[in-house]
């Protein structure tokens, strides 16, 4: 379950990083924004909850594209650090605005939509809530779609090409802005999906951004430019977290992902499935 959450969030980091070499540290906040967008759409589509979710996800896609067009586009060609800090600043801004608009209180979009989070019995006696199941399913679907898109689709290959050498890609007739905007849009979309489903499952408040930040080590452990890596990294980080919390100390929850990350960086800095060359090239 935790692994699915992390994986769904982590692929957002990977998407943006892979294409534009920018680490989007506002991902947690964008994901939270997606969840709050659900509160908005919930008011519109009270009767039919999938419509509300779809509308919120669509809004998020749009948000991602707009963030690129109005903010990150200005940062192309700047230092990577500056670009990363811009995302940090964006995160701070979003967080402030979200508190202003929706207040810091815990909210339950599931109630607003009038859906019951029934639990489903699994074979083997375990039980899982409806939205958790939905989340796991979504993660699998998203990964399946993204992987085939990037591997086989022409646009996928172009996204990879743009990530490696933007200049050459442009000279080969690729519209970089379109590719980047697409990456941001997709990334925000997947993030929002995660945010929405978590919110439906367990409510929504300001701590959600922290989950977003914790998913980021998962992306790094797997290798920042690899989707398969993000999946594997999420599994590792999530199981480490569950085990350590269970057997050692519940306070560790916030630290575990980063502990795993340090271990990983010492042994294999480019991650499980990442590409090595960009780390150290003369």
């Amino acid at each position: 379950m935790l692994a699915a959450i992390y994986a769904l969030i982590a692929c957002g980091y990977v998407l943006v990083y892979r294409v534009s070499r920018v680490l989007n540290l506002a991902h947690g906040e964008l994901m939270m924004l997606g969840a709050y967008a659900l509160m908005l759409t919930a008011a519109q589509f009270t009767t039919y909850w999938p419509a509300a979710i779809a509308a919120a996800v669509g809004l998020s896609l749009l948000t991602g594209v707009l963030v690129y067009l109005f903010l990150m586009r200005k940062m192309t060609g700047e230092m990577v650090l500056a670009a990363v800090l811009t995302t940090v600043a964006l995160g701070i801004l979003l967080r402030g605005v979200m508190v202003l608009v929706w207040s810091a209180q815990q909210q339950y979009p599931a109630q607003a939509l009038g859906v019951a989070n029934t639990s489903i019995a699994l074979p083997g006696g375990a039980r899982i809530s409806f939205f958790s199941a939905l989340l796991i399913l979504t993660t699998l679907l998203v990964y399946g779609a993204l992987l085939s898109f990037l591997r086989f689709g022409r646009w996928g290959i172009r996204m990879r090409a743009a990530g490696q050498s933007p200049l050459l890609a442009a000279q080969r007739g690729i519209n970089l802005h379109a590719v980047y905007a697409l990456a941001w849009g997709l990334s925000t979309l997947t993030g929002a999906l995660a945010g929405i489903l978590i919110a439906l499952d367990s409510g929504l408040d300001q701590t959600m951004a922290i989950i977003g930040l914790k998913a980021f080590p998962a992306a790094l452990v797997g290798g920042l430019d690899s989707l398969v890596g993000a999946l594997a990294g999420s599994l590792i980080v999530a199981s480490a977290e569950v085990l350590l919390i269970h057997y050692v100390d519940p306070l560790l929850s916030e630290v575990v992902p980063f502990l795993v990350l340090i271990a990983m960086l010492v042994v294999r800095p480019w991650g499980l499935f990442g590409t090595r060359e960009e780390l150290d090239r003369v």
Partner: peptide, 11 residues
């Protein structure tokens, strides 16, 4: 929250 938002904008 205002502080946060304004700080983000300035940055």
């Amino acid at each position: 929250a205002v502080n946060y938002a304004a700080f983000g904008v300035v940055m």
